[in-house]
Write a protein that binds this DNA or RNA. Structure first.
Lengths: 341, 341
DNA sequence: ATGAAAGCGCTAACAG
DNA sequence: CTGTTAGCGCTTTCAT
């Protein structure tokens, strides 16, 4: 095995000796304790700087039972939405001096449980689960492993909801986001509004409820054949729709931008005009939305706000203060040329 | 401050007592030392399982001076290319039982240095820098911080190159990738081939050299006005090109898919046919490539292969074996409808 | 094959 | 304000 160093690193004893103080004092200086005179502090700091000393984080971790690290688990960082969430989280955590350990769990139940278990073993100070994938159908047994985890460290759910002590949820109001959008489509006279989704996660269901309620509230029937479950791959969506017979719609709402782009490709391939004949609205306001032609209107769930809120809340909590168990952030529709709302 | 636990966790002493052995033996079992009889091993393991015991990683880290963790630094995980690289790296590292600490450094010199410094303080077993952004112009002073880091732990560069002991480079042959593509465009009769780039990083320059050499080798002049530096934002690219007067080209090659999509949008807005009048080729084979219309041919730098190779090489190295300092992986053109090569 | 004991580098209670 | 000292939980000689 490779050795990290040949020469022994300076430890707290060396610094103490060089500064002519005890190790306790050095430790206090490192932790910026108020019970050290500014004079000694300065002297010790000078030595530390001069010697380029950095405390051993392992020893520190042992003593404090913390390494200022939080675990972030998401199914897949290669996914654009999660990637940006992770980016926000990491950035914000670093503002507070925390590092983050990333674990991409994949989408399978067993793997997700394993992820939580392994990351807890690393003794992170808190856990963040990105995406509603971690709740299964929200049932008791599906969320057990999360509840268990919350007994060890605070758990934060980004876009997920589990009612339990020690679990803190920060989520976009996707129900309302879709509800509002569908209402506007209906008000504008659209009668056959397609709903595209690719999972049965908590947030996907929320969106579907928003869709259904909006239809009903606008005197439209919920037509099951207009709810289409398909994998979030642009070409697959297009081909799938292509394969349907008698599929007629004058608007489409999707739970993911990729789905909407697929629908858009289908519609244009059919020779229909967007937005004149068909309005299309995506979700997440990802880069895909500005890539397609015409550009896609999309519901923005404001990941940045969610993530910032989650981290700030976490810090408040770790500080011993009380925080809310559920924080809901409203969505916002970003209008582009695929709609004429 | 919150306490992680109220009840004291089981430690090695407890397990030793319960199993009727010494802590040394328990430790040996944990580390699967060959000098423990299978019989005792089994007994100790049984107790550990029964008690649901997991060794304290901090104490372990202190003793071994390692926590089986590697640091991954990239400018921004929200970027699709880096996100997928991080995803691959994380996955592969986990196969070997390593965790990863993620640091998004941003693009600024100072921040990058800080990132390296902070992550080294966490005593990671190795460091991975994703992207050629970490080399500056490749000069001595620009890479000093990386060379310094390599004295502490092995440093792996994904798509970067620095010649130095302890620095291991795994990179795509972007020069050849672009060279080949431009040759084919030239052979097909294209005379005015645009080159779009958005940075002066090592790999961007490699690509540019590939472009220039291919032109020369095919008897074409390098026209500086055809080399366009512009920010990698689809609309910005389109608008920038729109603002140019007398811009004429019959093909475009870009260092990033986003740039190519911008060019594609420009060309179509101008009313020209793709690929008949203008061939367009992107780089990275990202999701953007299948989102636009027509879909974009793109050079795939095979991030998965790079990352897998990097991690495997790292493990070989950490195992004390010798490994190559530079590994080059060929690119591959993924053809779609934006070209008729 | 197993155990006793000396660290690893730091924190924190306690004493002054 | 500062120093002494006892852990934190594990690894690793060194005996046996």
């Amino acid at each position: 095995m490779q050795q990290r160093k040949e020469v022994r690193e300076l430890n707290i004893y060396d610094i103490a000796k060089l500064a002519g103080v005890s190790i306790a004092t050095v430790s206090r200086v490192v932790n910026d304790s108020p019970k050290v005179s500014e004079k000694t502090k300065a002297r010790v700091r000078a030595v530390m700087k001069e010697q380029n000393y950095t405390p051993n984080v392992f020893a520190r971790g042992l003593g404090l039972n913390s390494m200022q690290t939080v675990g972030i688990i998401c199914p897949d960082v290669a996914d654009a939405y999660m990637a940006s969430a992770v980016a926000y989280l990491e950035k914000r955590l670093r503002c507070y001096g925390y590092d983050c350990i990333l674990y991409c769990s994949g989408y399978e139940e067993k793997a997700k449980k394993k992820a939580v278990k392994l990351i807890l073993n690393k003794r992170v100070d808190a856990l963040i689960l990105v995406g509603s994938q971690y709740m299964g159908d929200g049932g008791e047994s599906d969320t057990r492993y999360i509840r268990e985890a919350s007994k060890e460290v605070p758990v934060f759910l980004i876009n997920g909801y589990v009612r339990c002590d020690g679990i803190y949820c920060v989520l976009a109001d996707s129900y309302q986001g879709i509800y509002d959008v569908v209402c506007r489509l209906a008000e504008q006279g659209r009668k056959r509004i397609l709903f595209l989704y690719d999972s049965n996660s908590y947030s996907a269901l929320e969106k579907m409820h928003g869709y259904e309620d909006a239809l009903r509230d606008n005197g439209l029937q919920v037509d099951e054949s207009l709810k289409i479950y398909v994998k979030n791959k642009i070409q697959q969506v297009r081909d799938y729709l292509m394969a349907q017979e008698d599929l007629v719609f004058d608007a489409a709402v999707a739970t993911e931008d990729g789905l909407a782009v697929g629908a858009l490709k289908y519609v244009r391939q059919k020779g229909c005009a967007v937005p004149e004949e068909v309005n299309i609205i995506g979700y997440n306001n990802s880069e895909l939305a500005v890539c397609c032609e015409p550009e896609l209107s999309s519901v923005d769930s404001r990941g940045e706000v969610l993530c910032k809120t989650a981290v700030d809340t976490m810090m408040t909590l770790l500080n011993g203060e009380h925080v809310k168990h559920k924080i809901v952030v409203p969505c916002r529709l970003v209008k582009r040329r695929s709609t004429n709302l």
